[in-house]
Design a protein around this nucleic acid. Structure first.
Lengths: 207, 207
DNA sequence: AAAAGAATCCCGGAAAACAGGGGTTTTATC
DNA sequence: GATAAAACCCCTGTTTTCCGGGATTCTTTT
């Protein structure tokens, strides 16, 4: 009997998943949690074989949660569940130890397949995910950039529509410094204007 | 017996909704469709009392679908289902004839409440939605801006990270013209730089 | 504890975007 | 079929961002 824990903040979705998994005799849903904190607590008292984990949670990003869980309990297999098929998101999840990536528009039995596949030690990607990764070799693929505290702060202010000067005033630093951070953000995101940075940051839920 | 049709492109979500609605004796799910086109076709052969409609569909925006359905079948009540609680999205759905707006992180029985409430002729907003609308009087609230074909085209190119000159070259128009469109976009979105336009457009799924 | 690497800070000139003006052609509406 | 409104087009001067640098402090890693 494979023990599965669901981490997902949409109750209706949880209901759907439970229902689908119930239909398989070899799988047992041993718990469902709506945010990162409560799973981490629950895991201290006992571990499942597999965690089905939504990438977008209210309290912590799925990428980070995935990393934390894997650090503490390396035997637990993690399947990422997401609405998005952005390459960097997929890549970051896999780098952080996820064994599978399934889009939420997948059919129910795709999830069951995924569970059995990863219990066999395989890596499972749903068809749309594979499609998204097809013409990009995994080595060159860039993950979600790791940005610093200060950069994040500035990114958020830029996202609010403030100009460099307004940001400089607010943070009591020179406009040149703000521009320097702006430049580094463009560098890290691999683009050459702020607009693209904000667009990507918004896609990766960094704002 | 209240006949309900579900429009939602995530099969797992559909499964969850069906399961929840099944538990209520007065409600019957008479159909489920994954995109706008198939619902419109199905409606020609018979109408339900209520449509539970996801705002983000693969082929058409929920806002437009809502408008179309209401134009042809004004008696069908529509409840919008969404992950987002952005004011302009909520406002646009209600303006297009939706009678309810429920966030996907709502509990299952909230959906059932919503269905009964709107069948009684009420308007139903889930608690988080109400929260989002609280400090903004409905009159002043701005809807998602209506942008023209050309503007959309330019918005998308800007979103790709192209500069004004690159866009001008690609569309065989003057850079001045591109800047003019850019200006109008800022005007319509009520902001004063392109970055904010792209951020909002991305939130409203206009890209 | 030293070196390498990040992160935060600063500068000046070139290249864009922005603001505020005006004009013509489509598209609805009466 | 007139007319008003919207869409689309263009221009000039000012402001902001971009991009080439470089310096100093934190933080890791060895």
């Amino acid at each position: 009997m494979i023990k599965v824990v669901v981490v997902e903040d949409h109750p209706i979705m949880v209901e759907g998943l439970k229902n689908i998994l119930r239909s398989d005799a070899g799988i047992e849903v041993s718990g469902a949690y709506g945010d990162g904190k409560s799973v981490l607590q629950a895991l201290e008292k006992g571990q499942p074989d597999v965690i089905l984990m939504d990438v977008n949670l209210p309290d912590i990003s799925g990428v980070n949660l995935c990393g934390e869980v894997k650090k503490k309990y390396e035997d637990i297999k993690i399947i990422a569940l997401s609405i998005h098929d952005e390459q960097p998101v997929i890549h970051s999840m896999l780098q952080n130890g996820a064994s599978g990536y399934v889009l939420k528009n997948a059919l129910g039995n795709e999830i069951i397949h995924a569970i059995y596949a990863i219990m066999d030690g395989e890596e499972y990607l749903c068809s749309s995910t594979k499609e998204a990764l097809k013409n990009a070799d995994m080595e060159l693929l860039k993950a979600i950039p790791r940005i610093t505290r200060r950069e994040k702060e500035i990114l958020q202010l830029i996202g609010k529509g403030l100009t460099t000067m307004q940001i400089a005033d607010q943070l009591f630093i020179s406009t040149h410094t703000v521009e320097s951070h702006r430049k580094n953000l463009m560098e890290k995101f691999g683009v050459n204007n702020t607009t693209s940075v904000v667009k990507l940051a918004s896609e990766y839920k960094l704002l």
